[in-house]
Design a binder for these strands. Structure first.
Lengths: 251, 251
DNA sequence: AAGTGGTCTAGACCACTAC
DNA sequence: TAGTGGTCTAGACCACTTA
């Protein structure tokens, strides 16, 4: 019977969760784009009809999920994939001595194909859906160590061309963000022993069929929809994959 | 100069960080032990001379780091390693179809040894420091798939014996907690291609020298001190290692 | 100096759990 | 019913950034 609160709590839970959902909606509708500053906490609190404390709790969670980034004195920004920030959150390969270098990427293949059942299942699409498929060779310290084979549903990346991939100035996920409004926020990865293909063996300078560390990745966008499927093969003679449970999400 | 606040903010930062540090100290001194309930928020706020809101912010962070666990209506508890909870936070092996089973553990070796330089460096101890070294074979769905070789500094685990390891009722990290007051809260892992040893090849039913997924783990306790070094070898013919960036820490 | 996010407060009320 | 944590408020003051 209380009539104290300005607005009743809607279906599904609490006020700050509602605010969070409303902000996620604004982000998916690209009202606020990657790298942009969002309105101040005061303005957002007014807009959603809640106190600053409640509004802050919603932003707290979005920051914890690496969707927003706060900057004291500056404002709150939509997280942007940049080579100099957040890059190593998704690139987990380092030299055995711990040195983490930026890879030099070379596109070695670009084609269209129809989705195999296993890939379609992971991407939540129908078998045979058309995909862009491309392969990148990643060099660390002037030596090719990683081969990425990336598969993207054509419907989510309309108009993607080989030259766009060659010309991109920043990271691949930055490119998804700027060119297609797709914000990769989390990944699911599975690791196992794989075997180098003929092409990979040449690029990695190992024998064909030699064991490599295989990483199967599905990348998810802001609304938890799968947007990318990727198979990575790593030569771990001098490099390794870094995992582990940490409290703060990045490195 | 303001004389409003009850206590000046000490060196190093903010009130809630101070409260958090004080609580971490109480935890390392085992004032509150694994599985126990800690005092109510009201009592802790009085004890530390802060408001409930500030006290809650300290607990928020400790919960985010999986050190405490809140239970509405019940209280706040010191996180405990249990077979039925938090186990898969550290055990990352699953069948390829996604099925995650509890391993059946068999101790196959127990000995003492002196630390090699590489291990000592990881554990932050001197070369040649005495270690307990033991090997476990882990079976999933009635088949040995994982071999763990665990190294523990004798000084941190005084009085550890083979029979204690055989008799433990719960998980290994639960055992560290109950028997030695060591709370493992995070791990650092590095993955690469390894080769099965003679012993491993027999247990895993593969050829000696066959490629296996090698995981090098350092486990850290509540105060970020390394407490365990471990090499894991996984047969990934039917199983795989699960990684990835997720927002919520557990699975 | 103006505007931003960061900290902290003191309290009301709600939701859950145990007895 | 009593006690716990969970949500929410309305505001003060601090620290940082830009101009």
């Amino acid at each position: 019977m209380s009539t104290v609160t300005a607005m009743p709590i809607g279906p599904g839970g609490t006020r700050y969760k509602e605010v969070k959902e409303a902000m996620l909606a604004a982000l998916t509708e690209q009202e606020w784009k990657g790298g942009e500053v969002i309105p101040s906490e005061k303005k957002l609190a007014d807009r959603f009809g809640v106190s600053i404390g409640t509004l802050r709790k919603a932003i707290d969670e979005l920051c914890a999920e690496n969707i927003l980034i706060r900057h004291q004195g500056l404002g709150t920004f939509v997280a942007q994939h940049r080579r100099d920030r957040h890059f190593f959150r998704f690139f987990r390969v380092a030299r055995r001595d711990g040195d983490r270098a930026y890879p030099v990427v070379t596109l070695v293949n670009f084609k269209r194909a129809k989705s195999a059942p296993a890939v379609a299942a992971r991407l939540g699409i129908n078998d045979g859906t058309r995909l862009f498929v491309f392969t990148n060779a990643l060099a660390l310290h002037d030596k090719v160590v990683v081969i990425d084979t990336v598969m993207l549903p054509e419907t989510k990346f309309p108009g993607l061309t080989e030259s766009m991939l060659r010309g991109r100035p920043n990271t691949l996920y930055n490119f998804y963000q700027d060119a297609f409004g797709i914000n990769v926020t989390s990944t699911d990865e599975r690791l196992r022993i794989g075997r180098a293909s003929e092409l990979e063996s040449k690029l990695l300078e190992i024998e064909a069929g030699a064991p490599v560390l295989e990483v199967e990745r599905v990348a998810y966008s802001i609304n938890q929809k799968p947007v990318e499927y990727r198979i990575t093969h790593i030569n771990t003679e001098e490099y390794e994959y870094i995992a582990g449970t940490s409290k703060s999400s990045d490195i």
